[in-house]
Amino acid sequence: MKYRKLGKSEIKVSEVSFGCMSLKGGEQENITLLNRAFEEGINYFDTADLYDAGENEKVVGKALESKRDQVILATKVGNQMRPDGSGWDWNPSKSHILNAVDESLKRLRTDYIDLYQLHGGTIEDPIDETIEAFEILKDQGKIREYGISSIRPNVIKAYVEKSNIVSVMMQYSLFDRRPEETCLDLLANHDIGVLVRGAYAKGLLLDKPAKEYLNWSKEEVKDLVKQLHAFGKNMDRTRQLVLQYPLQHKAVASVVSGIRTEVQLMETLEAIKENGTLPKDLDQLSEIFPKNYYQNHR
């Protein structure tokens, strides 16, 4: 496993990391899977207070408590659960963030969070107030660093200009090359790391049945995937190319993979190995998949 520095921080994360939202097994099954991932070299585990109304943080905390100093724990804030459990509301306020962190710390069984991320955001948010909350938490030692999870260029630019974020989590794949227009270079130029989600495009790039995706029609998706698989020649090679594609940009620190089973874990670990993948292979892929662009939030 290779490790990359997360932006300008001192945090180093594995090139492929564990997106804990995908955990759907029983508690012990999930704990076993998380520990196996750690044993195989994955050190970055990403969750959120929203996932399973906090239960996801609990299982992650229980699984990794004994190796806390060897892992990078990341969670997210901003979606506030309603008292009656009927759903959640967006709340990026200073008061909510300062209160929510303590609950996440308890569930994660730790006294600090390595990376605390705003779980979304709009340009209409009280951004200065949100940033102030994260800076207070850094000063208090409750978090080491902070970042945002967003695909909105205008929001990303605002945080780049105003804050000390070290990371942005964003959707990026062969089917979603929108970050390549401006966001990736902007973040690289400011030494802000990118955590990639959605690298498999909901499985469409592998073996899920074709359907509409972003600006692509079902037929376009089907045709592009056919070309991808012909280029990859077999599923293992195709998976490798799909996973390696986002990692080629210098801004990208890790691909956060949603892993549900040990089989998926081992397939992902095998795909992260370069095994002869050359830049020209990835260049050819970029010729097969046309670029697309953000239409909103610019």
Rank of each mutant, 00 (worst) to 15 (best):
E27W: 01
D281F: 05
F134R: 02
V160S: 12
L137T: 06
L118N: 11
G41V: 01
A253Q: 08
L247Y: 09
D223C: 00
T122A: 07
T110N: 04
E124C: 02
S286I: 03
D102Y: 05
K202N: 12
E219W: 01
I113C: 07
S17F: 04
Q227P: 02
A188G: 14
K106G: 03
K222Q: 13
Y51C: 08
R239Y: 05
S150G: 04
E124M: 05
D139N: 12
K233T: 15
R177Q: 15
E129N: 11
D52R: 14
E145H: 15
G147Y: 10
V252C: 11
V160Q: 14
S22R: 08
L50Y: 13
K162S: 09
Q171N: 11
D139K: 15
S66W: 00
G85R: 14
D46V: 11
E270V: 00
S66C: 01
L187Y: 11
P83K: 14
L50K: 09
S86Q: 14
R107Q: 07
D207Q: 00
K291P: 11
E267V: 02
N296T: 12
D281H: 15
K280S: 15
S167Q: 12
V60R: 02
L206F: 07
L214G: 01
K94A: 00
K291Q: 15
E103I: 08
R239P: 00
I123H: 12
M21T: 09
G87W: 14
E55I: 01
P92G: 05
K202L: 11
L108A: 06
K222C: 02
Y159M: 10
I259M: 04
S257P: 00
I31M: 08
I113R: 11
I151K: 12
I113L: 11
A63V: 05
N189G: 13
G232A: 03
T268L: 07
Q80N: 04
F289T: 06
L105S: 06
D84W: 11
N56Q: 06
L228R: 09
L64T: 01
I127K: 04
K106E: 12
I72Q: 08
Q248A: 08
Q295I: 12
V256T: 05
S163R: 07
E262Q: 07
H229R: 11
T122R: 10
S173K: 01
G203L: 00
V194P: 10
T261S: 14
L108Q: 05
A271W: 03
V71G: 04
A74C: 15
S93P: 01
S150T: 08
E65I: 04
Y245H: 14
V101Q: 03
I31V: 15
Y146V: 04
V252W: 08
N99L: 05
S95V: 03
D125A: 11
V71P: 01
V168E: 12
M1V: 08
L214V: 09
M1L: 07
E40L: 04
I31C: 09
E40N: 01
N189P: 06
K273M: 03
Y116W: 11
S254F: 07
S254Y: 10
N43E: 03
W216L: 13
N43T: 14
G78E: 03
L195N: 10
N99F: 06
D176S: 05
Q28D: 12
R144C: 07
Y172D: 08
G54E: 09
T47K: 10
I272P: 00
R177L: 08
A133F: 04
K2P: 00
